[in-house]
Design a protein around this nucleic acid. Structure first.
Lengths: 211, 211
DNA sequence: AAACCTTGTTCTCTATTTGTTCTTGTTATA
DNA sequence: TATAACAAGAACAAATAGAGAACAAGGTTT
């Protein structure tokens, strides 16, 4: 697939820095910022290291964009466990017709530890009434644990037909994937398993009554 | 559909300013006000940044309207800085048959700023199904703003007959206080106003799906 | 209604920041 | 010794940011 060049020490150090930076800030660093953080004096040399990370598919190629040093998503991005910090990304509205990966810049929301798991979580806002029978209303927030599998009966966030994100109850058989709304007036929808990509499962829900 | 250009540093700074301004003032700022707040000297350059925010659908297009720089979403404005101290007391379970004042020592729960008001708030856990038609289930948490008055239709926490705490919809007339559950199978209850003491009104709700 | 001020918009020009590509030299390691 | 890893810095180009002038539409005062 790809010629895996193992990372050198320095490259690891830089990658580590990027991961940590990514956890705390929502803008990527500049080369100069990385330099001063790591005690380097030359952007040029740093850039060569970054280039290796790009080749290793750990960093997105940032074509001259300023602050374009961003980690590649979806992969095995190591998560630094920081139990004191329970601010997690708010990625916008569900059913917005966009794959979640597309969300470029986000803000963070602090949530109670009771509403999240140990794993990577994010927040979405619900649009629509498809889950009202389970007490999830329009404009509620939901906390989602990021993962790509679920068991039957779980409430999941799924990317359907590669163009729509939706919150439903999942029922999987080898030949079919059924997404069931929790709303008496709506019908379950049947899909080819290939057309449903699980993006996370529901772990929490919140609602504001402030007007 | 939409080519998400990530925000540049300056654009983020401006957006952040708008969010904070929005939370404290009730009129949008003028370009000049933003300029002097951020130390800029040219409306023109600022305007270009604002234009990017409009393209990113973060700011409404303000067609020459004065003070027309308003954020796109009203309720769901992402909070960028959420580092304030929002740990509030957890006072135990509702309907526990004890006036809340009696709770001596309590733990604190961190909640998102979106779920609380500026005033004193606390958290209770719901016992029972009296509010399920409004999506408040058994074992949900509710965030309550502490106060002793409410208007008709508010969802409130009340101490009834000096021995029971309950979460209901309130309806007040000079001669009667009616507490209505949100559950088709339960009946409203009528009280002498003297026997119902309002302890707070509902401002937020949370639910955990982790088991 | 007219005169006036405020404020959003558009434009041009310039400055600064920052990613990229070099060349050169040093240090570590097999 | 040979090779890879690393560092520094110069030079360049694109992206980003800023200043200021001129204009037009909105509001306000007279």
């Amino acid at each position: 697939m790809s010629d895996y060049q193992p990372l050198t020490r320095k490259q690891q150090e830089i990658y580590q820095f990027l991961v940590e930076h990514y956890q705390h800030r929502n803008t990527p660093p500049t080369l100069d910022e990385i330099c001063s953080a790591l005690g380097l004096k030359s952007r040029g040399s740093l850039h060569k290291h970054i280039q290796h990370l790009v080749d290793a598919k750990l960093v997105e190629p940032s074509n001259r964009k300023q602050r374009g040093i961003r980690l590649t998503t979806t992969k095995n991005t190591p998560i630094i466990k920081d139990s004191t910090n329970n601010a997690i990304p708010y990625l916008g509205k569900i059913a917005a017709g966009q794959p979640l990966e597309a969300v470029a810049n986000y803000s963070k929301i602090t949530i109670p530890t009771q509403l999240k798991t140990e794993n990577e979580c994010y927040v979405l806002q619900v649009t629509g009434d498809s889950m009202i029978d389970l007490g999830i209303f329009n404009n509620d927030w939901v906390i989602i644990e990021k993962r790509n599998y679920a068991k039957n009966g779980d409430i999941i966030v799924a990317l359907v037909n590669n163009n729509e994100v939706t919150l439903k109850i999942i029922e999987q058989t080898p030949s079919k994937t059924i997404l069931k709304p929790a709303n008496k007036e709506m019908q379950p929808m049947h899909f080819d398993p290939d057309n449903v990509q699980i993006q996370g499962i529901l772990v929490g829900q919140m609602r504001s009554y402030i007007h």
